[in-house]
Design a binder for these strands. Structure first.
Lengths: 190, 190
DNA sequence: TTCTACCTACCTACTGACAGGTTGCTTACA
DNA sequence: TGTAAGCAACCTGTCAGTAGGTAGGTAGAA
């Protein structure tokens, strides 16, 4: 009877480490200490660090897809959906102490296996498609102002969110996230 | 009379490495091979990696300040200045093969000495102040449309630029930079 | 002029620490 | 009795950094 599923505990620890320290910034030794098992035992669950990175990104992608579905179910308007997504990025930034896994992994691109690079592409496509639909909806229901090209808005918004996380991270100051996002927020009708 | 100044060659190599591999992704061994001296000799120029990171950021900040001054001298309108700055970020992205040093360093924040963190803050403040003035100018001379809050525009634009570099880097595809930036570009009057 | 002293720039050879990863053994439990 | 999960011990390679030395140049004083 393990306290929590060790594999999940390892994924949690690794995700936190990757998002704060970067992929090249954490080691199996760090995870071992954090989770409370020996370094060698990690290899039982994740034979290699490449392997671990794939599992990490896989879970991240799945979780994000669920999140988007949930937002869709809970929020009827485009504006409400966009507000909710911003909130996820804001919370994910953790007051400038973390980055989105996708951002962190993109910065250490050359250390990652091809599978992860594919997953990153899929992750980005998924969000951009979802946001394109969200901007379209916001355009037609009047809940987001000033939209003319939903697909371009979506691409810009994703860059803005990731850039905002980076801004907050750069100085470990959550206000910088809000500052960067403010103008977009003003376009959303309450 | 040395071929090229070794110290400069080391800074060039380190900057390239940091911007493609991240701060934790390159080693003195990499630099040694690239520059053509022995690993130990690097310590003659930069006693520690922390020391090197400071020199790197110092030069980067100085170069960027010069760039901004040059743009100011060459371009009379706010729109032209913004276009020029975007171009620097686009070129700096190197078709999705690099990131801004500031972005790359922010992602490995915890591996860097306090001096570099200060420099990063100063770097960001400098650009945001410069862009705030640029948006103000563009607002008054009519070369940038739709501006109501120049300071917020500047904060959003910096996040957008850095996010756009990240987007291009994520898939090593320069089109993603242009895509993310397009809507801002459309606000600039030729 | 030549000796001494000191310099920069680089070298070989090494250190202790730590990286990811492997082997083979021991539990626990179904 | 089989299997999953964990362990200690160890491997090889690499990390940043150090010790100590050399080649060649410069500057000053006798």
């Amino acid at each position: 009877m393990p306290t929590t599923d060790t594999k999940t505990a390892l994924l949690n620890s690794a995700e936190h480490a990757a998002r704060t320290l970067g992929f090249d910034g954490f080691s199996y030794a760090d995870l071992a200490e954090d989770v409370g098992i020996r370094k060698a035992s990690i290899h039982h669950h994740f034979p290699s660090k490449a392997n671990l990175s794939v599992a990490l990104m896989q879970r991240y992608l799945a979780t994000f897809q669920e999140t988007c579905s949930k937002i869709e179910a809970d929020c009827p308007t485009g504006g409400a959906r966009l507000t909710e997504l911003i909130e996820r990025y804001r919370v994910g930034s953790d007051d400038g102490k973390r980055l989105c896994l996708c951002v962190s992994f993109s910065a250490s691109r050359d250390s990652l296996p091809p599978d992860v690079l594919d997953q990153i592409s899929r992750f980005r496509s998924m969000i951009i498609e979802w946001m394109t639909e969200t901007f379209k909806l916001g355009q037609s229901d009047g809940s987001i102002t000033g939209t003319t090209a939903p697909a371009l808005e979506a691409a810009a918004a994703l860059s803005l969110f990731e850039g905002a996380q980076l801004a907050a991270r750069a100085e470990e100051n959550p206000a910088l996230f809000d500052n960067a996002i403010e103008l977009l927020r003003q376009r959303i009708r309450a």
